[in-house]
Computed example of a mutant assay.
Amino acid sequence: MTRELHSERLVLRPWTAQDAAGAIGVYGAAEVARWLSPAMDRVADPAAMRRVLEKWIAEDAGLIVPGGRWAVESRETGGVVGGATLLPLSPDEAYEMGWQLRPGAWGRGYATEAGLAVARWAFAQGLEEVIALVRPGNRRAAATVERIGMEWVGETDKYHRLRLQEYRLRPGDLPPA
C-alpha cells in the first residue's frame, strides 16, 4: 500500500482514478512521454489516463513496502504537478525511483524535491540503495539525479529493454534534510 509522503512544497499521495484530468497533463505530454522508461506511449485522453491510473492502483495493491506510485501534488495549489515511483526491478531486486512532471512545472525544483522524498522514504524502510535510470540525452533527468546526490554507475541495457544510464543513491549520499 502506497503511503503519503510530505516535503516542503509537495504532497506525494496515492493515485486515484479521479486524478486523470491532472495526470493527463503529465503523461499526455509528448515531451514527457519520450523519456519514460519503461517506454510508455503518450496517453491520448482523460479516459485512457483513467484506465492507466486504475491499472497502477491495482498493481500498487500488490506492492511490498517501500514500493509505490504517487501523485505529486503542489501544497500551494492542491493540483497534480507530476508523478513519482519506487518500483522493484528485475533481474536483481534493485529498486528504481523515478519522477515525471507536467512541462508547466519544470524548472521549479519539484523533481529534486520529489526524488528526495521518495529516497528518504525508501531508506527509512530499510533499503540500502535505490537506482535511477535515465535515457541518454535526457539532460533534465541527469541534472536532477545529480542534485539528489546520486552517483553515476554506467550505461546498462539490462532494464526495460533499453540502453540507459544508471545512477545509484545510498543513505550516506543524501544531502541533509
Score class of each variant (00 low, 15 high):
R69C: 09
E113H: 08
G126R: 04
Q125E: 15
W56Q: 14
A141Y: 02
A29F: 02
R42W: 02
V65E: 15
R170W: 04
T85Q: 10
G137L: 02
A122C: 13
A58E: 11
R75V: 10
A132P: 05
K55Y: 13
W106K: 07
R147C: 02
E128Q: 15
M1H: 12
R168M: 02
V43P: 04
M150W: 00
E8W: 09
E59H: 12
A124R: 15
I131Y: 09
D173T: 08
A143L: 08
E146W: 07
G137P: 00
A124D: 13
R75I: 12
M49N: 06
A141L: 03
A29H: 01
R102E: 09
K55M: 09
A20F: 02
L87P: 06
W15G: 00
G98E: 12
R147W: 05
G25W: 02
K158S: 15
V153I: 13
V81G: 05
H160E: 00
Y159P: 01
E59V: 12
A33D: 02
W106R: 05
M150S: 01
A94V: 08
S37Y: 04
S90Y: 11
L162V: 03
P91N: 11
A124H: 13
A58Y: 09
E155Q: 15
I131W: 04
L127K: 02
V145H: 01
M97Y: 15
H160D: 03
Y95L: 03
A21Q: 12
I57W: 05
L86C: 07
Q165D: 12
A141Q: 07
R139M: 13
A132L: 07
T144G: 04
A114C: 09
V11Q: 10
R9Y: 03
A44E: 09
G68F: 12
A141H: 10
G28K: 00
L36P: 04
R69H: 14
S7M: 11
Y95G: 02
A124N: 14
L133Q: 02
A30Q: 08
G109P: 03
W56H: 11
R170D: 03
F123L: 13
W35K: 01
P88W: 07
V43T: 14
W35R: 00
L89D: 07
A47N: 09
A58W: 08
A132E: 08
A20M: 06
G83I: 00
T16W: 13
P136I: 01
G115I: 08
A44T: 07
P91R: 04
G67N: 06
G104I: 03
W99C: 12
G28A: 00
M1V: 15
A142I: 01
E93D: 14
G107H: 05
R51T: 15
A119I: 09
G115L: 07
V43I: 13
R120E: 13
L36F: 10
T85D: 14
G149W: 04
T156H: 01
R13T: 06
A48W: 04
G98F: 06
D92F: 11
E8Q: 14
R75M: 08
W70Y: 13
A122W: 08
V134K: 01
A61T: 11
G137K: 00
F123K: 04
P14S: 00
A47F: 03
E59R: 12
